[in-house]
Amino acid sequence: MKEIYEIAVVHGDGIGPEVCSAAVEVVKAALGNGSPLNFREYPAGAEHFLKTGESFPEPTFDACRSSDAILHGAGGIPGVVHPDGTEAGLDFTLRLRFELDLYANIRPIRLFEGVTCPLAGVKAGEIDYIILRENSEGLYAARGAGVQLRGELSVDTLVQTRVGVERIVRKAFELARASNGAPKDGVKRVTCCDKANVLRSYAFFRAVFDEVAPDYPDIEVEHVLIDAMTMHLVLRPGHFNVIVTENMFGDIISDLGAATIGGMGLAPSAELGERNGFFQAAHGSAPDIAGKGIANPYGTVLSAAAMLDWLGSKYADSRLSDAAANIRAATNKALAEGCLSADLKGNWKSADITRRLCDQLAAMR
């Protein structure tokens, strides 16, 4: 347990400041007076790039690296790009992933009571799984290193290493072991999602998975090709418990999974390394609704709860773990009672949702 935890807060772009501020307010309400968290704000993102020509200032990176955890709103604005065409606002997230070795991107996909599922007949509790995305290798490792030859040819390299694959696979089995199993049958199961029938890099991913699996005899294992997975997540989502996959595939199917539970506004994420933890909702910056007060704060609030869980486990601090549990309970209650933002077909403003969560948390203390 630490006396004070330093939290680097980077609001980012678009709706980022709105949802990030909401999450900070909710965390403070959960912890009450004498909170051990010290929030410090730092600049980064596309809007900062437009003002200064720099998207990720070095002092911000140093603060993120030395802080106990990083909380982010959202990054990027369409059309704000570097000379090579890549988005300036993504530098923040991608640099943290690669330079702080945040290799495990944990994206829970859960259908809440009170939220209408776009899949016919699927009810709350019937979708509850984790997509574990390898976060430091794969196709995205080529960012900034690909080749473009005279406007006629371009090449990006997909990178898989034994160390990288083994550690993400072991993380998947640990998550499954700590879970309640798949909603449909209660089985603790890890699904390896790849394209091993076509590409050697994915065949390698599967081979390492198969080498690790016997170390976890209590966990059921299976393989699903990525194209089949996009179908299964729609037709039988209750079968899945933990899905482990390469960087780009994880990026794609986590958005698909989010769509089945009401949208990206309910999709939190935790990006973890051996030392650092980075927490943000999986959604983008949605500049078209920025400043209108209708952004969905739940994804960032749940990401902040994951931050408290991670810190509470890391430092054996029950104050943080209990606060995380209370935030999730308050979120469950608010959604079940119909506190829905516009993207969830409701009419609750961001500030009203935040206030409701804070009031519920105050009553829990």
Rank of each mutant, 00 (worst) to 15 (best):
T93I: 11
W348R: 15
Y42G: 02
T93W: 07
T191L: 13
S66H: 09
A88P: 10
G76P: 10
W348A: 15
H232Y: 13
N197M: 05
I253E: 03
G262R: 04
L266N: 08
G12Q: 09
P287I: 07
M307R: 09
A104V: 05
F173Y: 10
H239C: 14
K314F: 13
Q148L: 10
L158W: 13
M248H: 14
V122N: 01
E18Y: 05
E47W: 00
K171A: 12
Y5K: 07
V147Q: 13
D91R: 07
R170K: 15
S285A: 15
A207N: 13
T116I: 00
A258S: 11
G53S: 03
P43W: 09
A29T: 09
A351V: 14
D352N: 14
A46P: 05
T260P: 12
M1C: 12
E137P: 10
D101F: 02
S35G: 12
A46Q: 09
V159S: 01
C192I: 10
L225T: 11
D62G: 00
V165Q: 02
D128N: 13
I4R: 14
A29H: 09
A141L: 08
N105Y: 07
E174T: 10
L266Q: 08
L100E: 04
F98C: 00
G265V: 05
L149D: 03
